[in-house]
Amino acid sequence: MKVTVEQDRCVAAGQCAATAPDVFDQRDEDGVVVLLTDDPAAERADDARHAAAVCPALAIHIEE
C-alpha cells in the first residue's frame, strides 16, 4: 500500500487523524494533514482506507 496526501486540497476537518491516528496527523497551526507513514503496517491499512473514504476534500489517495 502507498498513501499520498494533497496538502493544498486539505480543509483540516480532522477526519483522517480521528480515523487513523497512526497514519495521519495534523499541523498544529492550521490542522492541515501530515502523513506519518506512506506505507502503513497491515493492521493499520483498513484505517487508512477508511480515512481516504471519509476525507471530505478528497485529499487522500491510496495505491494498493
Binding site: D8, V11, A12, G14, A17, A18, P21, D25, Q26, D28, E29, D30, G31, V32
Partner: peptide, 17 residues
C-alpha cells in the same frame, strides 16, 4: 475559501479538542 478556513482551523484539530 482555504485562506479563510486555515485561519480558523487551528483550535479544532483532533488532538487539541
Amino acid at each position: 475559501h482555504s485562506r479563510y478556513r486555515r485561519i480558523m482551523t487551528g483550535p479544532f484539530t483532533f488532538k487539541r479538542v
